[in-house]
């Protein structure tokens, strides 16, 4: 059942924030809305949450048409980037809020709050005020609060956006584990492609109010459907008229078919990875203009096997179907 979005459109004045959005999110999944700033992720999430009404189209949550239903009646959980804590209430009161609004019996509220605080590992913090929690703890409180009402859908808008890198990574892993336990259909917004690929089981890539591609992290990474997705999801380097991932460039010491001579102008080692910057002797394509250096990514083993050093003359070419996987290349400026 999950979430169904049919032809949703949203404009702000003359600006089109969402254009003909069609999307179906499987129930029980963890879906990421990924896209650059201003691509309409928050707008779409708000439409799901009932905080914004679409100009056209309809939204179904768990099989129910909720397009004109106010947020109060949608039975969703919403988690905000900046926690949106009820600052004058204790952590336990925050979590209890949704249940109290629903007039749940007191004993039951207490039990459920205890359960949720344990789930988010805040059982010892129930009596504190949100201001006395760290950012990560506050966001876990917000999550418990949203989950308290047994929502049919959990919506998270950049839930880790306000946290520092380390806490963010911890919380990210933790969210995935939590999702495995709770299994509520979840959609989270992020502009961090690593976060999306790592946490989600389905990634929806958005750009300028449209959906560019929907797929598993593997599909999105290995088979980007458009030039935009290709460039947004991972690093891209140019080889003549082709655009490809730095690790899909093959380096050899001798000429091979389709390879091109060049010189290593920079060699950087980052842990187990080696990055090369290769300036080609001539442009392998016919686009004209200056050809930018080709970026290459190798494992240290590969690099050592070839005994690569800076200023070495080498040959490079796009890797052909390495390891049984089609190498994805796109023509420069090919568009969608």
């Amino acid at each position: 059942m999950g979430i169904e979005i049919h032809h949703v459109r949203k404009t702000f004045g003359s600006f089109t924030a969402l254009e003909d959005i069609r999307l179906s999110v499987p129930s029980g999944g963890l879906t990421a809305l990924l896209g650059p700033s201003g691509s309409g992720k928050t707008t779409l999430l708000r439409i799901l949450g009932g905080q914004e009404e679409p100009d056209a189209g309809s939204v179904y949550l768990a099989g129910r048409d909720v397009t004109r239903l106010p947020a109060q009646q949608r039975n969703i959980g919403f988690v905000f980037q900046h926690y949106a804590a009820f600052t004058h209430m204790t952590v336990a009161k925050n979590v209890a809020f949704g249940l109290e609004v629903r007039k749940t019996p007191k004993a039951q509220v207490r039990r459920r709050v205890q359960e949720l605080l344990e789930l988010v590992q805040l059982e010892r913090f129930g009596d504190r005020l949100p201001a006395q929690l760290s950012g990560g703890q506050r966001q876990r409180m917000a999550l418990a609060r949203a989950l308290a009402v047994d929502p049919s859908v959990l919506l998270l808008d950049e839930p880790f956006g306000a946290l520092d890198a380390k806490v963010r990574k911890e919380l990210r892993d933790w969210l995935r584990q939590l999702h495995e336990e709770v299994h509520v259909t979840s959609v989270f917004v992020t502009h961090d492609q690593e976060e999306a690929l790592e946490v989600a089981d389905t990634v929806v890539v958005m750009n300028q109010g449209r959906i560019e591609q929907v797929g598993t992290p593997e599909e999105i990474y290995d088979h980007p459907a458009s030039d935009f997705v290709f460039g947004f999801i991972g690093e891209v380097t140019r080889f003549g008229e082709l655009r490809l991932r730095p690790h899909d460039v093959e380096v050899t010491l001798d000429p091979e078919s389709g390879s091109h001579p060049g010189r290593i102008t920079r060699l950087t080692r980052i842990g187990f990875e080696v990055r090369l910057e290769v300036v080609l002797d001539s442009d392998p394509g016919s686009l004209g203009g200056a050809h930018p250096p080709v970026n290459v990514q190798l494992s240290r083993t590969e690099s050592q096997a070839l005994d690569l050093q800076q200023w070495d003359a080498i040959w490079v070419r796009p890797r052909a179907a390495a390891g049984g996987r089609e190498v994805e290349v796109l023509r420069v400026g090919a568009g969608r």
Binding site: A71, F80, G98
Partner: peptide, 26 residues
């Protein structure tokens, strides 16, 4: 923070409840 009101709404609180329990105390 308007998100605080949105949070209350998403948890099922009516406008009146939100005013009484969230906005007025603030």
């Amino acid at each position: 923070d308007r998100d605080v009101e949105r949070a209350a709404h998403s948890l099922g609180a009516s406008r009146a409840t939100t005013v009484r329990r969230i906005i007025l105390p603030a």
